[in-house]
Design a protein around this nucleic acid. Structure first.
Lengths: 148, 148
DNA sequence: TTATTGTGGACTATTTTAATCCACTTTACG
DNA sequence: CGTAAAGTGGATTAAAATAGTCCACAATAA
């Protein structure tokens, strides 16, 4: 089971694209084509990133998108939570409709510990980190051979 | 999005039940009733745990289930991977059908790092830990008020 | 005032997860 | 024996989550 949903994958690719093309308005269509992502779906995803104040949008002719903040100030946790929601380990183990003793439940603390570890790690990775790695050649612009 | 699937939750509840009732054959029906889990579904889940050598099954009249190992030797990672499969962060970001440069991909290392952290933490939690916490009163035998 | 671009809501399709059904095998006990 | 009580395993269906599409609309620059 993958923790990162496809839409989050798309979001990250779009954000890397924006980071690689600063100082210009980039359209959703351009990103969709370059990253080979369904246009209308990408619209939805970018809307969420806009609402999450990760990208800025500009409507109308010659409009488009740009990063709302510096890539160093956008971390992976922001991105993930904005597009796919918070990562939880489990609602609660015991009890049918959510544990009736959640406040006292000792399992819960195990999950919270883990959730926090995950969040901590993910939030330390910034968009800039990813961009740097891309610049070092760690991926190709237009993938799709499906060989890996 | 929850990382722990419902079936894994059921599995853990069943295993705790088995751990709390050692030295006897416990039937799936008994666990299903006590833990309020659909019987036929629980059958499937326990089959996986049997294949994963986490529980032993005994067919026929007066048959049933028991833990295949001591609760200290069963960890959460075993359970999760046995019932819901391996936890991955992402297949791969870049490229359409899986990243064609996976072996060189630098993103991959970020995900692998995180996967390992998660696995490390989860594998340190044993069934015995959970049972101990249950014994300390951290849950109630038959939940379901849905108040928590 | 028109072409371009994002917005937002409703909708459909696909995939995953959950749950059920049923015919079968094994086995203890009378 | 044979029968009732268990688990097994494959097929199927149901429900939920995710992915993707459609369309009418709003904003805006030329």
């Amino acid at each position: 089971m993958e923790i990162i949903r496809r839409k989050t994958d798309y979001a990250i690719r779009a954000l890397i694209h924006l980071a690689l093309h600063p100082h210009q308005e980039t359209t959703t269509a351009e990103i969709a084509e370059e990253q080979e992502v369904p246009l209308e779906y990408l619209h939805k995803i970018l809307q969420r990133l806009t609402h999450g104040n990760i990208v800025n949008s500009h409507r109308g002719a010659y409009g488009g998108l740009s990063l709302a903040r510096d890539p160093e100030d956008i971390n992976l946790l922001d991105i993930i939570e904005t597009v796919q929601g918070k990562i939880n380990m489990n609602k609660c183990f015991l009890g049918k409709n959510g544990c009736p003793r959640a406040p006292k439940c000792v399992f819960k603390s195990k999950w919270l510990q883990l959730e926090q570890k995950i969040a901590e790690f993910i939030s330390q990775v910034t968009l800039q980190d990813l961009v740097d790695q891309v610049r070092q050649g760690g991926y190709q612009e237009k993938g799709g051979e499906g060989e890996g």
